[in-house]
Design a protein around this nucleic acid. Sequence first.
DNA 1: GGATGTTTTAAACAATCGTTTAAATTGAGT
DNA 2: ACTCAATTTAAACGATTGTTTAAAACATCC
Lengths: 237, 237
Amino acid sequence: MAHSVSNSLHSQRNPGVEPQPNERSIDTRSRILAAAGPVFAAQGYSGATVREICSTASVNIASVGYHFGDKLGLYREVINDLRLARAKRFPTPNTDPKKPQDTLQALVNTLLARMLISEESAWETELLMREMQNPTPVFESIVEGFFRPLFDQLTETLRLLVNSELPMQTVQHLAFSTVGQCLYYRVGAEAIQVLIPEQQRTSHYDIDSLAQHITAVMLAACEKFATSQQQIAPSDR
Amino acid sequence: MAHSVSNSLHSQRNPGVEPQPNERSIDTRSRILAAAGPVFAAQGYSGATVREICSTASVNIASVGYHFGDKLGLYREVINDLRLARAKRFPTPNTDPKKPQDTLQALVNTLLARMLISEESAWETELLMREMQNPTPVFESIVEGFFRPLFDQLTETLRLLVNSELPMQTVQHLAFSTVGQCLYYRVGAEAIQVLIPEQQRTSHYDIDSLAQHITAVMLAACEKFATSQQQIAPSDR
DNA sequence: GGATGTTTTAAACAATCGTTTAAATTGAGT
DNA sequence: ACTCAATTTAAACGATTGTTTAAAACATCC
């Protein structure tokens, strides 16, 4: 009745005996995976339908049950493949301790490039954004695999730019300030589209311009934080 | 067959003749509205079901069709009531041109308070967040009614803090930097919960601490931007 | 080439969705 | 008390969802 919690392949009736998948089998499997990503990203997990996925993949509806057991099983595989693919495409910039300013600029560029990507792999970012607002059971692994590495590199770089006696929480807040500014140009993209007329948007909202601005803001903050003993140093009161 | 595009009340058969709603009528109507807000916020528009809304409102399922015509009609009313309620609860801080630093601090405080509210009206912010990622036909009116006023006040305040010859786009970017930092502590809340151990989170992530940090970052940036003719002034290269 | 296990297929399943219908109930005016 | 419009109610509608089933098609090995 209820399918036992076993491998992803349902055909594996007797445990320990690996089935030998056909060439067609892995073809339909990969075709489902390729079609599922954009659909999950566009409609969300619960909004996406296995019928639409199988339709765009030119595959029978029962195939997802056969190859992934479940709709959630398919989603897990999509997330897993996404992590592997992105690790290769966006290599973390090599950190040069002698030029932390340049490292910060490179990190901001990488962050913005990940946010504002508009190629055929834009659905990946969309999917990660949906996970941030509607976390599914795979969210924690996403944070550890995706966000933690960049967050650590960002805090290390910012540490070099400020007074080394600043408490760690302040440096972490500076990292969140950096990420937050980058993230806004994706989360708030629809709002910006309403707030700013199109004429201005076309000329000053490319990745390089935004990266330069955000880097300048954070460098100014770091300089001020570097010369102050306290966490906050009001200027006049 | 298909209900004609008319008033929200279906009972209004002959145009020009206002129906006189009962006491019970406006009671069920308001009870539906009160129940719909949190459900829409928690499940999203398409995820929410009129059955759950009517169940928590202790109202028949057909009532939403009678009073609001449609599920979307109910949603529009929820958004409309939300705008009116929030305009009263979060009055925009009065802007004193002589102390732009204080005005900025107050604006950041208001922004963060709107983001991190955890009272019984937390569903309102949740609903606005969902609109940002999954815009419905009411999104544009939300931006104009909710975001535009604070965005304008923010740009005016920042204008007083920087060189008055700076191009408008730079000031707008500074406003987005401010909003982005505040927004991150809500959008990235789930990620922060994984990245930062609970022990640290309890002591340095209250509204006042975060507002002080963000204000300090933006004041540092403004000071630097005020003394530079160019939009970006690299320090050493 | 027949036997065996793997994969695909069409069809149906039960559950749930938003919406509609027609009758029952209520409330106010005369 | 009767009338008539407003409102509520239970029930059903058609459509769509994820999942399952049993048979057909395929591939592989002896």
